[in-house]
Design a protein around this nucleic acid. Structure first.
Lengths: 132, 132
DNA sequence: ATTATTGTATTATGTGCTTAATACAATAAT
DNA sequence: ATTATTGTATTAAGCACATAATACAATAAT
């Protein structure tokens, strides 16, 4: 169900953190809602429960998740934290992209053209329609 | 001189491969030109010679570098390989960017605006002025 | 009260990354 | 001819990641 790449060199638990963080900041996983248990998530992602636990602990440390002893784990209701995480993440993704393209010698105009023509195949996948 | 991040979770040798690959596809390291020896490069990047060797071997496998037994290592003169590598790399970087932004709920228009305003701080760093 | 489910912790094993310390072969420089 | 420099290979050690197999504590469900 979730595509964790074992061959990218990036530790799996970091990839999972990134995937879940995006589900939260995109609103696909709504604030306050419960997330599956560690064992179920481990199965869904096809990883060991310990690895999933490691990822969830980190997201908890970031304040995006919190655990209720035996009831399970939930997305934070604090939308401020979520919004901040989205801004921060978007900024990082954007900066990295610009840096890479510039480093490869692509001009601003050419890069924009590429973005314009490449964005078509990704419309309407998220529950968030606008972030202005 | 070169900023290798030890804390990103990405293996150092992969980061080095990426950095050098970009130097080649951007033209900063010209086709046919000699690159420093493994030991010197290791010092410049602040890593172990073995780690640098591992990175260089992979770039050699890709055809971007070749080694002349005792004379040293050189960038390929085959600009076709370099161009192909640049197209491939640019495509990956672009696709990843679009995917991330779309996943976070950013629209095409908002993304383009962000790219437009963010590209200012990176002008004129490369020797390649245009890739059209 | 008992059972099942939750998060959490522990110990062990295997693998890949990184450094370290050498050593060797080939050849350019002297 | 000798020396220095090049790429390359080997062995050992430490560390983080990932899996496996359990176990425990707390509490919701029965």
């Amino acid at each position: 169900m979730f595509d964790v790449k074992y061959d990218s060199g990036v530790p799996i638990y970091l990839q999972i953190i990134h995937l879940i963080r995006q589900k939260i900041v995109s609103g696909e996983w709504a604030p306050g809602s419960r997330v599956p248990g560690v064992r179920d998530l481990a199965i869904e992602f096809g990883v060991n429960p310990n690895t999933m636990q490691k990822a969830l602990s980190e997201l908890e440390r970031e304040g995006l998740l919190y655990s209720e002893r035996t009831a399970g784990r939930f997305i934070t209701e604090n939308t401020g934290i979520i919004d901040a995480a989205r801004e921060r993440l978007a900024g990082q993704v954007l900066a990295e992209f610009i840096k890479q393209m510039a480093q490869m010698g692509f001009t601003r105009e050419r890069t924009i053209k590429l973005v314009e023509s490449a964005f078509e195949n990704h419309a309407g996948l998220s529950k968030r329609e606008e972030n202005s």
